[in-house]
Every structure is written in C-alpha cells, then in structure tokens.
C-alpha cells in the first residue's frame, strides 16, 4: 500500500486560504488503510476546517466526498457532476491520486492535504513500515524475503555495514538492521553461504532510466 500522513492544519489552511468553495476529497484505498485519507479522515479534516473557518468568521463552503480510488480515472470521473460547484479541491489522496484529479479537471486547483510517504505494510494497528522502493527489479528471493534496498539505510547489497549493534541500525536504535534480519533468516534456511556471493551493482535504469515509468498491457485494454 501507499502510505501518507496528513499535513499540519496550519499548512493546509494556508494553502486553501485563497479559495471560498472547497471540496475535501478522500480516497478509500491505500490512504484509508493507513488512516490518512479515507472517509473517516476526510470527514474529520472537513469538520476541523469548517470549525476553524467559523472561529475566524470566514465565509467559506467546505464539503467532503470520498472516492473509492482517487488514482483511477473511472472513479475520478464521478466528480464530473459536482466539481463545478468548487473553486478548489483539497485532496487526501496520495501523490498519484492528486495528479489523477489534476489531470482530469484542469480548470480546478488541486491541493495536497497529505504527504505521501512510502510503499509499506501495516505491521500492526496504527503501525506502518516501509518495505519496498519500487525498484523495478525485485531481488527479494536472494535475501530471504527482506529487501536491503528499501530497508537498509545505506541500500547495501553486500551488507551488513560495520555500524549495526545488537541487530539495530546505526542511524537509530528503533530501526532493525535489515542485514541482521537477512543473515538470521538465511541462517534459519541453511542458506547463509548464498551471501558469500558478491551481488553486483544494481541496475537503476529499471527505476529511473526513462523518466516516469509506465506499464502498457494490451491484453488489459479495450
């Protein structure tokens, strides 16, 4: 899932200050799972902004709506009937959602209400961790299902570095050393000798070789 966190309310208020009729637009997919921009959070933000406006005596219209997926045009098109009512959209979608709306409705300013963070997993209730960089060339089978590119602070393919102690990363004792986890896991599988290989430099052209990436699948097209 794509995770995110809401921006501070002051920053959001500053961004929407020029506008009088604002649609607060949530997304019921990834950002709902990480409790940043789902229906609930969208309602909370809209209510908070309305209260703040009332307290300051500002005459603004703030309404809310949540799309099933803000990054899919089939859902974004549902705004077609209502968007004219507003002079700005405050989106709680991830960066992809914000841009999908912007792409479709070029007349209306789209403002991001959340900071998109990472591709991650829900480790526990209220606890999300980064686990994938979307490098375009998955190597997880080499490393016991633990990604050193996403989870090692130095992205080592031939780790661990000399800084880990007691299984903790040198940058922060709250961070588990990905390489310690990899070594432990491969030891359990009896596959530690795999790490005697020198893994060659990663092919980053798969991630950033041709500008923004796209996937084209004719079998999926109409």
């Amino acid at each position: 899932m794509i995770t995110g966190e809401q921006k501070p309310i002051d920053e959001i208020r500053e961004m929407i200050a020029p506008y009088k009729r604002i649609l607060v637009l949530g997304c019921a997919s990834c950002v709902a799972e990480c409790a940043a921009g789902g229906e609930k959070e969208t309602a909370m933000l809209a209510s908070t902004l309305r209260m703040a406006a009332k307290m300051k005596g500002e005459d603004v219209l703030i309404e809310e709506k949540t799309l099933d997926r803000q990054c899919v045009r089939d859902f974004v098109i549902l705004l077609d009937d209502i968007i004219e009512k507003y002079d700005a959209v405050l989106s709680l979608g991830c960066g992809a959602g914000v841009q999908a709306v912007a792409e479709m409705f070029t007349e209306v300013p789209i403002i991001p209400a959340i900071n998109t963070e990472f591709l991650g997993e829900t480790r526990d209730q209220g606890y999300w961790v980064e686990s994938c960089l979307g490098c375009g060339d998955c190597m997880l089978h080499h490393f016991g299902g633990i990604c050193p590119v996403a989870r090692c602070s130095k992205q080592l393919l031939n780790g661990p570095c000399g800084g880990s102690m007691d299984g903790r990363c040198e940058i922060n004792p709250d961070v588990k050393c990905a390489w310690h986890l990899i070594v432990d896991r491969l030891t359990k599988f009896g596959a530690l000798d795999r790490l005697e290989n020198i893994y060659p430099p990663k092919d980053w052209s798969r991630k950033q070789g041709g500008g923004p990436r796209k996937i084209v699948r004719e079998d999926q097209q109409k």
Binding site: K154, Q155, L156, L157, N158, G159, C161, I198, Y199, P200, P201, K202, W204
Partner: peptide, 8 residues
C-alpha cells in the same frame, strides 16, 4: 547516494 556499496 549509495549507488554502489563498498564491496562493489
């Protein structure tokens, strides 16, 4: 950056 690691 960490494009290469020290061993590479």
């Amino acid at each position: 950056v960490f494009d290469l690691d020290s061993i590479q």
